[in-house]
Design a protein around this nucleic acid. Structure first.
Lengths: 186, 186
DNA sequence: CCTATACTTTGATCTAAATCAAAAAATCAT
DNA sequence: ATGATTTTTTGATTTAGATCAAAGTATAGG
């Protein structure tokens, strides 16, 4: 079975009927390292599930490429503010290795929510998960030193160093590559 | 009608039966300026709706009182990570003026979600709202100057200066009081 | 295996904003 | 009002981390 269905079943149990309907709707894409899933300025119409691979979200600020976050396999990724509010995204989504992606559109999810209460519940639980994560991560972030920020990142994302390069990691926590290199070298 | 029911109806329309059930369950409290709704270290079991007044969330870091966020009337507040994951809160919640609060517990919400699909939907929509807000606000925050952070705060929260003092506002955006005072004085 | 490109480290300098300190202004209580 | 407390402003100094610059190191493609 696809990890996508398994992922959903971590939150709610779904019948064969629901599974079948989801598999009928889902778009399966094989994207290559460097490929763009969403371009900054466009409206993000899908939630992507990473079946296998890694993607990052990033944007340009003052001419610099800033990585917003890195997503490993078995996680979902989208531009939340763009997807939820149907506004142009302020970030791009890019595969940083060859990646197998499952996705459904906003409209498909709305229909599924209405048709199956169990998926409405899934929708709520997923959003709760995202809220808890964001809330946890940003709490007290402002007043941490670069080293403390790095240690926090490692604690919530231990294998990040295998997933992304120094520049990506540094910008995720808002510090320069050079500073991160010095932290790592003690 | 209470603004709380009105607030819910901004997201979903609810029957008289549902309204009645909510009003039967809801806890109404009148708290005074300075009163603590939730103490750091305790588990937050409620979502609070501010019928009238203002509250702030805050915590201590390196001996300093850091305001995490300010909530005006007609908004909901809780410690999301504590409420959702049943873990000790890392922040306190305090009224900063005399405030009228409506609240329901986590367990009450779980029952309401199961009993009424329309409230399950409300739960999802509320979580989506929080995600969109957090996502919007923190995007690119790291690489902004103090002045840019302050301008962003004012743009999403124009009447913040009427609601909170300089120290609260400065710590909300992670800068020192002195720096904020200098920004304000141009 | 060698060259090109990408990534990381190291060193020197600079700067935005923190910290420290105290004065001025506003608010509150008697 | 008048003194006490809280909040805000202003000035001088310090510092963490950015920026600039260059040298290593690794990785990939032909």
């Amino acid at each position: 079975m696809s990890s996508f269905l398994y992922y959903i079943q971590q939150y709610v149990s779904i019948s064969e009927e629901v599974k079948k309907e989801i598999l009928d709707l889902v778009l399966i894409e094989n994207v290559l390292k460097g490929d763009i899933l969403l371009e900054e300025g466009k409206i993000c119409k899908r939630i992507y599930f990473i079946e296998k691979g890694t993607v990052r979200t990033y944007f340009y600020q003052k001419g610099k490429d800033i990585t917003y976050w890195i997503y490993p396999d078995n996680s979902i990724v989208t531009s939340w503010h763009s997807y939820l509010r149907c506004k142009p995204a302020t970030e791009s989504i890019q595969a940083i290795e060859d990646t197998l992606i499952y996705s459904l559109t906003y409209d498909q999810w709305q229909e599924l929510y209405t048709k199956y209460n169990v998926l409405e519940r899934f929708g709520r639980l997923i959003m709760e998960e995202v809220v808890a994560l964001l809330d946890d991560f940003y709490k007290g972030y402002y007043f941490m030193s670069s080293k403390e920020k790095y240690e926090l990142l490692i604690s919530v994302f231990p294998d990040i160093t295998q997933r992304a390069n120094l520049g990506h990691i540094a910008s995720m926590i808002g510090i320069s590559q050079e500073t991160l290199s010095r932290i790592r070298g003690n």
